[in-house]
Design a protein around this nucleic acid. Structure first.
Length: 554
DNA sequence: GCCGTTTTCGGCCCGACTGTTTTCAGTCG
């Protein structure tokens, strides 16, 4: 069964092989196509059926043809041929840090080495010594890299999910901001773009004295090893295993550096080619005409100097956002303050008055106007376990905040689970597994459906199933829940939901299980999906509830 | 191999760091 992920993987492998063969621009062309393909929200086969493969950025005549071949046969003859040409062990060598295609090729051609094991033997036998470009340090570096690779099985250090990296990033940035002389510090890179996973963490700080910043940073308890350190840049590896690149620039270059380190690579390459067409140069220090710096202090300045409006980080993937911005079209993405209704928080039946009040205080602090509460722990027969009268009273004293009762239903695992207090005003539906049950009546006593929750890739998140539920949610007038973790929609799936016209339900960060970090990540996902404040789900109450019910009957 | 309100051919972002080099190549992001 062909898949987008496999197609991207094949093109990436082709790029590696071409690298070793010394090709100059083809490898990047194949990598660009691979990046585009893996961020598609749709199966390649469907795009191919519409004859629109060429509309994918980086896909031209040759790659279109190979995609067609792959979809028809599951194979790419060109790839098979390259694999016969280059020993597989040589490609493994490319994975070693500090070792690139040129060096791998030299090992292969000059030493006749065909993989890591043979390379280790060659080094042990002293066959590298005396060769141009291989001094004692370089040899030691290669040997160390080989040892590390042997200790850590291939495929171990993948890209960790953003929710894992988030608290680490916050800690590191806070530590940097506390260094005297540091005006600003921000995490950039794919982290700032709100991607689901983070490769390396890129952090940027301003200071006139980088040395002091590096000294402090190197000594942080999170840091295991300093990999390299120069005058403007330091790379460390955390105990956690994550690599962090820290860059320190002067305040006048902060915007340019932030723009540069936020990426994406494709976005930056595109931006710089526009700059060159205008006789300008963009680098991490600013936008220049000759030696004159036109911009650099803020990102707005940098985009402005190129004749563009500010483009939010979450959109910077070179997926048409630059062309749209050039025409003045930049969507107004949803902001944290736009999330005024939280349709899905939980409260245990054993909650104390203090806990209930704390929840309400957080909601008021966030200036929410609506909070939908599920009382969890209700028994399976549907007999709600009652909150104490004192808690009930506390929940009624909203003070500008409307509190709603919610019934949450989990379907797909027998028996179905229902939880929520009596007098619920709408339902949250959680489909657990399997396809959309055709004609299956979801109970709920005729209550409108507010949210379809927990649809994520962790639970049989096949595109067809996801699309089915999203369409169903849309027909109900319900929102679909977005957030980090395998059970919620990531940004790619959220984009699918947006394209289907479904609204998105975002956590406010007030709930016990959905803290501020979850809320921030979910917001990033929604923004990556291009959502604005009008795309947020609202509680189906009053007249809108009647609308939702009538839609459901149709 | 891709791409084009200056092009269907001739370009392809730009700089830091390291190690090995007396001026640069390779790697990385």
């Amino acid at each position: 069964m062909p898949s987008n992920a496999e197609a991207a993987e094949i093109f990436r492998s082709i790029a590696d092989l071409l690298d070793v063969l010394g090709e100059k621009f083809k490898p990047e062309a194949y990598r660009r196509a691979a990046r585009s393909i893996e961020t598609l929200t749709e199966d390649l086969a469907r795009v191919a059926a519409r004859r629109e493969l060429r509309t994918i950025p980086g896909v031209g005549e040759a790659i279109e043809e190979k995609l067609g071949e792959y979809l028809a046969t599951g194979r790419v003859a060109y790839y098979e041929r390259l694999k016969r040409e280059v020993p597989p062990g040589i490609v493994e060598l490319l994975r070693l840090p500090g070792l690139g295609p040129k060096t791998a090729r030299r090992f292969w051609v000059e030493l006749g080495v065909e993989g890591p094991a043979e390379l280790e033997e060659a080094i042990a036998a002293g066959r590298l010594e005396g060769r141009v470009g291989f001094g004692p340090k370089k040899i030691a570096q290669v040997r160390a890299a080989l040892g590390t690779a042997r200790a850590a099985p291939a495929g171990s250090g993948g890209r960790p999910p953003i929710e894992e990296v988030y608290p680490i990033a916050e800690r590191l940035v806070a530590a940097l901001r506390a260094v005297p002389g540091v005006e600003r510090a921000e995490a950039a890179g794919s982290f700032r773009r709100g991607r689901e996973t983070v490769g390396d963490l890129d952090i940027l700080a301003t200071s006139e004295a980088p040395e002091r910043v590096f000294d402090t940073f190197s000594a942080l308890p999170d840091v295991r090893e300093v990999r390299l350190r120069g005058t403007t840049k330091e790379t460390v590896v955390l105990r956690h295993g994550l690599q962090v690149d820290l860059r320190v620039v002067e305040p006048a270059a902060f915007g340019a550096a932030l723009q540069y380190f936020t990426g994406s690579k494709d976005h930056n390459v595109h931006l710089r080619s526009i700059a060159r067409d205008r006789g300008l140069k963009v680098n991490e220090y600013g936008v220049f005409r000759g030696d004159e710096r036109l911009a650099g202090r803020t990102e707005e300045e940098v985009y402005g100097a190129l004749g563009l409006p500010y483009i939010p980080p979450e959109l910077r993937e070179d997926r048409g956002e630059i062309e749209a911005a050039a025409k003045g079209v930049v969507p107004r993405l949803v902001e944290a303050e736009d999330v005024r209704e939280d349709l899905h928080v939980h409260l245990p039946p054993s909650a104390t008055v203090a806990e209930a009040e704390a929840l309400l205080d957080r909601a008021r602090g966030r200036r929410l106007r609506f909070l939908g509460i599920v009382v969890a722990g209700t028994d399976l027969a549907g007999n709600a376990i009652q909150l104490s009268l004192a808690v009930e009273r506390a929940l009624r004293s909203g003070g500008g905040l409307r509190v709603g009762r919610v019934l949450e239903e989990v379907y797909g695992e027998a028996p179905d689970i229902h939880q929520g207090s009596p007098g619920a005003e709408y339902r949250i539906v959680r489909p657990r597994a399997g396809p959309l049950p055709p004609g299956r009546e979801i109970s709920g006593g005729g209550l409108p459906i507010g949210v379809v929750a927990h649809l994520g890739p962790g639970r049989d998140g096949s595109p067809e199933r996801l699309a089915g539920w999203v369409a169903w949610a849309r027909a109900q007038g319900a929102g679909v829940e977005v957030g980090p973790g395998p059970e919620r929609l990531d940004s790619t799936a959220a984009r699918l939901a947006r394209e289907a016209g479904a609204r998105l339900a975002l956590p406010s960060g007030c709930g016990a299980g959905t803290d501020a970090t979850t809320a921030a990540i979910a917001l990033g996902f929604a923004r990556r999906a291009g959502a604005g404040s009008a795309d947020l789900a609202t509680a189906p109450l009053g007249p809108s509830a009647d609308r939702a019910r009538s839609t459901a009957r149709r």
